[in-house]
Amino acid sequence: MMAKTLYKVSFFNAGKVYELYARRVESGALWGFTEIRDLVFDINEGLVIDPTEERLRDEFAHTTALHLPMQSIIRIEEVAHKGQSAIRDAATGEKVVTPFPVPPRGK
């Protein structure tokens, strides 16, 4: 059985570099845009291991397709295995640590 193609897509978004995994990457119907479909996230039951992965999953939960301007795309790689989705600082390349949500102070 042939394995499904998997892509790692790195792109600029709001001053950060997002790294996501997807099954489909195509030239979009909109001129100058690349269409990213079938996003892949780790589905972990129970304990949250990586809050960044959960944040990305929540941010793109209802997204059927991303239409990214070609200028925002840094790299598209065809990969054999899914790695960790990440948000990185655009200037330093360091992974942005997403803190756990803090409950609001009591009223």
Rank of each mutant, 00 (worst) to 15 (best):
Glu54Lys: 08
Asp58Asn: 11
Gln84Glu: 14
Ile36Thr: 01
Met70Glu: 13
Leu39Ile: 11
Thr34Gly: 02
Thr34Leu: 00
Leu66Asn: 01
Leu66Asp: 01
Glu77Leu: 12
Met70Val: 11
Phe41Gln: 00
Glu59Asn: 03
Glu45Ala: 03
Phe41Arg: 00
Thr63Leu: 05
Thr63Tyr: 11
Ile43Cys: 03
Arg55Ser: 06
Phe41Lys: 01
Arg75His: 05
Asp58Arg: 13
Leu47Gln: 13
Glu54Arg: 08
Arg57His: 07
Ile43Asn: 09
Val48Phe: 05
Asp38Leu: 05
Ser72Lys: 11
Glu77Met: 02
Phe41Ile: 01
Thr34Cys: 00
Ile36Glu: 00
Phe33Thr: 07
Ile73Arg: 03
Thr34Arg: 00
Val40Lys: 08
Arg37His: 03
Leu56Asn: 06
Leu68Ala: 01
Leu68Gln: 02
Ile76Gly: 04
Asn44Leu: 12
Ile73Cys: 10
Gln84Gly: 01
Val79Arg: 14
Asp50Asn: 15
Gly83Lys: 14
Gly46Trp: 10
Ile36Cys: 03
Ile74Gln: 11
Thr52Cys: 15
Val48Ser: 05
Arg55Leu: 12
Asp58Tyr: 02
His67Asn: 06
Ala65Tyr: 03
Glu77Ala: 13
Leu56Cys: 02
Glu45Ile: 00
Asn44Lys: 15
Glu59Thr: 12
His81Asp: 13
Thr52Phe: 08
Ile49Asn: 10
Asn44Ile: 14
Ser85Asp: 09
Glu45Val: 04
Ser85Glu: 11
Asp42His: 15
His81Phe: 13
Leu39Trp: 12
Thr63Ile: 14
Ile87Asn: 04
Ala61Phe: 12
Phe60Ile: 10
Glu35Leu: 09
Ile76Trp: 12
Ile76Arg: 07
Ser72Met: 09
Asp38Ile: 05
Ile49Thr: 14
Phe41Glu: 05
Phe60His: 13
Pro69Thr: 03
Leu68Lys: 01
Arg75Phe: 00
Glu53Arg: 09
Phe41Gly: 01
Asp58Leu: 11
Val40Gly: 08
Glu77Cys: 00
Val48Leu: 13
Ala65Gln: 10
Thr52Pro: 02
Leu39Cys: 08
